[in-house]
Design a protein around this nucleic acid. Structure first.
Lengths: 158, 158
DNA sequence: ATAATAGTATACCGCATGAGTATTGAATGC
DNA sequence: GCATTCAATACTCATGCGGTATACTATTAT
């Protein structure tokens, strides 16, 4: 189903909210309330986000979390990766992949390319870009348009 | 981890192979051998591919499967969807979604937009395009370049 | 200093999902 | 009618993931 796990989804949701609230600091409890997610779940997610340095935390009374960077500078790829680890469409794409067929598979060398493209789509979509997506229209963030307009032969890094 | 299931991966592998062999007809047993996948697994996958009308089957002696369309006309989105059902990054994107937060979620209306873009990337990448992906370079299939509405004359790469 | 606040770290459970397998049935062609 | 090959169903099993509980540590206001 090509899905991102719920926790990662929650992560994006929380990051997005923190982005809108910046630079206000929000406690886990506040986040739990505003997102309607159970507190223990929020706890779990926040740990990932802190480890990934996407949010900064402060303890004590009046502590809480705030987005480490402006929302334009946080992309979906890193948000998802923070929670779920390396993004990999297939095992072939994962560094720690353990596909038994790998050696004899015609596609083992092809999947990473596909993976890279999907990744870039996510990389070039920021938390701020999310606000521009409506339910039915497909707004395309400028950085993405640029990506796809790249000359044949691939872009940038290889 | 944003992954596609193994069965779907197998599906693409098989479709790709059928594409290269077209219009030769291949039995499940042959497919099992050439892909190094267990026969029962191939059976399972083929059912999905037939139901989705991506391959046509023929029974009896000298029966087998062949790709229903030329490989340029079969894209990754439908290949994956054939095995895994509707592609949906999150529950919000799924028609049959049952997200408890949905009503109160800030992003419920935004995810489908992101989903749509990723989908298009997959839609515009055909089985034939796979051959153009090398391990380390990121070739972008022409239909994909065109997709994002790149201004005429194209843009320099980032 | 102390208490209240709030983040940090672990450890556990149960269920849903998906991978893999086996068996039996139906169609085709010689 | 018999060999061949696909079709359909049903089942097991393990893994992963979502969800939860609990105890601990750090910070700061007063």
């Amino acid at each position: 189903m090509l899905k991102v796990g719920r926790l990662a989804d929650y992560g994006v949701l929380i990051l997005h909210h923190l982005g809108r609230m910046r630079p206000v600091r929000l406690s886990m409890e506040s986040l739990s309330e505003v997102t309607h997610l159970p507190l223990p779940t929020v706890r779990k997610v926040m740990k990932f986000l802190v480890d990934a340095e996407l949010v900064v935390s402060k303890r004590g009374p009046n502590g809480g979390y705030q987005l480490a960077r402006p929302p334009e500078k946080v992309n979906l790829a890193e948000a998802i990766a923070a929670v779920e680890g390396t993004l990999a469409l297939t095992e072939c794409c994962d560094a720690a992949g353990t596909c038994e067929i790998h050696d004899r598979c015609d596609l083992a060398s092809r999947w990473p390319g596909v993976n890279a493209i999907v990744m870039r789509v996510l990389e070039r979509t920021s938390l701020a870009d999310l606000d521009r997506f409506g339910r039915h229209e497909t707004h395309i963030p400028p950085p993405l348009r640029e990506l796809m307009g790249a000359p044949p032969g691939g872009l940038g890094r290889s």
